[in-house]
Design a protein around this nucleic acid. Sequence first.
RNA 1: GGCCCCGUAGCUCAACUGGCAGAGCAGUUGACUCUUAAUCAAUUGGUUACAGGUUCGAGUCCUGUCGGGGUCACCA
Length: 527
Amino acid sequence: MLPGSVIRFPVRISGDERGTSDMAADYTNLEQIRLEKIEELRAEGIEPYPHRVERTHTSVEAIQAFEAVEGDEQAAVVQATLAGRLRSMRPMGKIIFAHIEDGDGRIQLFFRANDIGEERISLFNRAFDLGDYIQASGKMFRTRAGEASLWVESFRMLAKAVTPLPAAKDEVVDGEVIQHATLADPETRYRQRYADLAVNAEVRKIFRKRAAIVRALHQFMNDHSFLEVETPILQPIYGGAAAQPFVTHHNQLKQDLYLRISFELYLKRLLVGGFERVYEIGRDFRNEGVSFKHNPEFTQLEFYWAYADYNQVMDLTEQMLAFVADQVIGQRSFTYQGHEINLNPPWERVELRQRLAEVTGIDIHEHATAQSLAAAMKAKEMEVKPGATRGKLIDALIGNHLEPNLIQPTFLYNYPRDISPLAKSMPGDPQVVERFEGFLGGMEICNAFTELNDPLDQEARFLEMGRDYADDDEERHPMDEDYLRALRYGMPPNGGFGMGIDRLTMLFTDQRSIREVILFPHLRSRE
RNA sequence: GGCCCCGUAGCUCAACUGGCAGAGCAGUUGACUCUUAAUCAAUUGGUUACAGGUUCGAGUCCUGUCGGGGUCACCA
């Protein structure tokens, strides 16, 4: 908070004032009761939000330490101070069983009036609620029911929760927490992700796995001598992909800027500068519709590899995903939406033209123009968007007829030139470029090509885009003069690669919606 | 943006063709010294997303708005 800035304190509303102020929180009955408990604690000289914690063990550490010496008469008892959030309470008169949850897991606490006095038992029952953070000290032991637990000698409040967690009850069976009537409404789960995470352990698992995936990718790239770099998110000219950008504005410079739609053009400038292998993992922003596989901001890995071509990039892609699988799930195969997917190299490699002919009966080689291809598609009763370029028609064929059925790892290669303005043409066939896309689980997850490093050809491609795309087509690539200047200094032959990390995470976590693998997915604002 | 579905207690869900808005869990009160979805008894809690309309009567039917989900378009 900056000095001098205005801080607005929420005001507690009661009685007739309820609902008349737009500034204060509106407390529910349940919250009112807990606010009263806070006052009660303070009245008894207990601070409900103390500064310091004296944790000695996490839940898992305490149980492990206990089990290591359990049954050994000579060994010292395990004394532990634990901290965590109250997740269950089972008071039985003058004893209480409760579970707290910490970052590692759950552990049971056992309170007995004989040890801590009826006063403390009563305080716990009166003023402590599910969701509160507490600290408890005592000795580890095993209950008659067989659960390693903490026999509490003292406890204190660490942070009182005002709002109850949106969960009813949990059951632990064989170490797995089974949720009974927990927070399920997707809207609330995404808008209040903190509550979702607090209550749904399997959601936390998804994001741990996501972190493991990103970690594995960093490790793989670093191990293969790729230099991690950071390039601008705010760009005066956007490029590197066919997408609409977000526009923002720099006040002092009086300049409009775009949020990047890809890293490509900046990373390739670095190859001009002499780095041979560079990569970046970061956020792209695309001003487009949202869907189960599109979020306005998403995470990508891009790398550029000097002296390699798209065939070598295909090989590296196979190794990379096998490595990620090994690191993250310890095996090469996993289930995605009921399909068994195996990431063992090699992937199926099939030429785009051949697979399109097999599936649709249309040989794109026989249709050199958009008109001809559109006619062939119409003859098969396929929908054809008026004004689409040949490349866009082919793209539609891929999306509608190939992609959904590409469940097992598959590379489609050799793409039409006009939707690949940054890829190098095939020797002897200028209408086809050395480009491939990788598919998994019916989704495209990566895109790569032998990068175009001929500055004159690149300039021609930019001009082609300008000619073939209508002035108001927002996907039209703007001419990037500075990028062309960079290419004129000479860029080594190289293979480039881009992969969506969100979609990869969907696959590894068996999630159908991208919102399940993004902590705070974009939602329309309320009102 | 088009079309379809949805929005009821803190959470999960009921409420037949329009007829007194309910349950489980959570909460509150009480009982209970090895429970673990603890149990038992009692009990609080609602502008049925919002704004209109039709009707003697609307959670239910109609119109609009807001939000979500799905799908198509767009798009990786």
